[in-house]
Structures are given as structure tokens and as C-alpha cells.
Amino acid sequence: MSTRRHPDVRPSLRTLRLDSFATRWERLLSAAQRHAVPDHEDLVLPAEGMVRRGSGPALHYLEWPGWAADAPVVLMLHGGGLHAHTFDLTANLLRCRARCLAVDLRGHGESDWVEPTSYGSDAICEDIDAVIAALELEDVVVVGHSLGGMGAMVWAGRRPAALSGLVIVDVAPEMDAAGIGSVGAFVTTPQSFVDLEEVQAHLAADSPTIAPRVDGVAANLRWGDDGRLTYKYDSSQFMAMKLELRDDLRRIVRQIVCPTRILRGERSNVTSETAAAELAGLIPGATWTTIPDAGHTIQSSNPVALAAHIVKFLDEITPTSAPPPQAPQ
């Protein structure tokens, strides 16, 4: 399978400034303050690496420090048109409880692009296998949002022995057509901007009631050869992506045997309560809940609540080894 890099293999000076440590640190602090994340002094930027293999695209991943040797592994997969840094705050809140990693799906972020027909659920499954093998991960808990959640469900249904737990974030076999249409229109419409201020104005106009901030998408932007900002993902993938949907996905998820939690955003226009409840009914032992003050991208709209629910899930499936409190003498 041939691969191709996104256009800015050799970054310009403006690209380097956009991705500098100081710039990324300020964006992280700004997002933390906006979401009232406690303990700002404990925030860290993640380490970065690439998984390379003989065939298939190179995959960029992030890893946050602070985990204990016996900590569970949490592997996070973002949605379509997003990137691994979308989990920056969630992973910071989890990093002392678990070994947290996040992967740029192929055709996203800093991972390689491939031919338009080489995207989809099967491809995500291959990439999960590659990351787990390259990093020698065991007893993995996968957190998958939207597109990453679809791939994670397919992978979990086919490889039940490799998974300790699954958290599905705002995706289900039956999704709201209007919501999916709006997401699809956004990621397939070519967009470019003069500067970050224009990006902010565009985001505010697109979602005036939610007022998204540019620090949440800056890691997903690059300077193009024409001197304008554009998104890092390969928009062509969404035209020919091969996904298991509806009845095909229903059939696959019935094979999932690991502990599973389904989370939907209270304001989600993609996954309804009915759809989340149906999915929970298809997976043996699965449960679902709604995250308040959150839209479709829960890790961006309410990362504190998302982290809290993942910690609760980890506590249920991987109890800590701390001794129980002793009774008073």
C-alpha cells in the first residue's frame, strides 16, 4: 500500500512558530483555564513518537508521563477531522492513574496520508494492531471517539482477547443523519484562512451558541504552500472511506466481550439517548451514560467530566492495589 505525506514535510518558519513549545504550552494553559481544570502546575505537554513499519503508513502518537509501572494502558483514538492533541486535557487528568497514549489516525495530524480507498474501519484496526505491537502494549483499554470509536468497536469485536476495556465516545450504529451530515460537510469542504484570528471568527460563526476557541484546533492547522492556514487532515478520505455502519456494526459489536462503557454528550447532534441505549443493549454487560455540558466531541467540550468517567470505569475494571483503609482502633 503506497503512502504519501501531507504537503508540508519541510516546515516553514511560520509552521515552526505555530508548533513551538511555548505556543503549545500557552494553548494548553488557556484551554485548562477555560475548562476550570484544577492544578495547572501539574499540566504537561506529551512526548511524541512515530510507529513505523514495513508496509502501511507511519503513525504519530502522543504519550503523557506520570504513570506507575503497574498502571493500566489507555489508548485514545480521535474522531474524523480531529487529531491526537484533542485529548491533551483529558490525558493530563488521567496520567497519574493510567499510561495514556493517543494516536493520530492515518490521514490526520502528523500521521501519513494514504490513497483515498485505504481509509476506514479495517485500516483503523490494522493501525491499532501496529501501535500495540510496536509499543508492546498489554491489557489495553481503548477510548474511541466518533470515527475512532467505530474503528475501536470493529477491532474489539474481532480481537476480543486483546482488550481489557472499551469506552465508546458519542458514536453508535444508528446516528442522527442531520448531525452526521453537518460533520461530513465540515470535513469535506476545503477551507483555508489568513491567520488564527480568521480561524476564530469562522469557528464562532459556525457555532455561535457554543463559541469554540482556536486553541482547541490550532494543533490541527498547518501553513500551506500558498501561505494560508489549512487543516492537517486528508479531506479526500471522507469521500471513499469504508465503514461498517448500522446492521453490519450491530452484528460486529455483539462479539465484544470486554467491559464496555458508552458515553454520549448531552448536546450531541450525532448520538441520541435511544442510539446509546440500543448500543449498550447489543454489547453484553455494557452500560451507557450522558455527559452533561458536552457536545459530540466530549473531550473538547467537557474534558474534566470525560476524565472522571474514564477513571470511574478504570476503577471498576482494574481495581487499584492500594490496601483498604484500616478501621479506627
Rank of each mutant, 00 (worst) to 15 (best):
V199D: 02
S2D: 13
E126R: 10
R246D: 13
D248G: 14
E266R: 09
P38Y: 06
V114S: 14
A71C: 09
P323D: 13
A130Q: 05
S2E: 14
P328Q: 08
V270K: 00
L13H: 12
A36Q: 13
R27F: 05
H309I: 10
V217E: 06
E316C: 15
L137Y: 06
E273R: 07
R17T: 09
E278C: 06
G224H: 08
L105K: 01
L243I: 14
N269T: 09
T90C: 12
G295P: 03
P284H: 12
A308R: 14
D170E: 06
A275K: 01
A280Y: 02
I180N: 01
P284E: 11
V103I: 14
L89Y: 03
T271I: 09
G66R: 11
V51Q: 12
A156Q: 00
W155M: 03
I298M: 04
L59C: 04
A205K: 14
P7Q: 08
D195I: 13
Y231S: 03
A36L: 10
L28N: 08
L77Q: 02
I283A: 01
A277E: 07
Y61T: 03
D112L: 07
S121D: 12
A152M: 01
A308V: 13
N269F: 02
R106Q: 11
W288G: 01
P328G: 11
G227N: 06
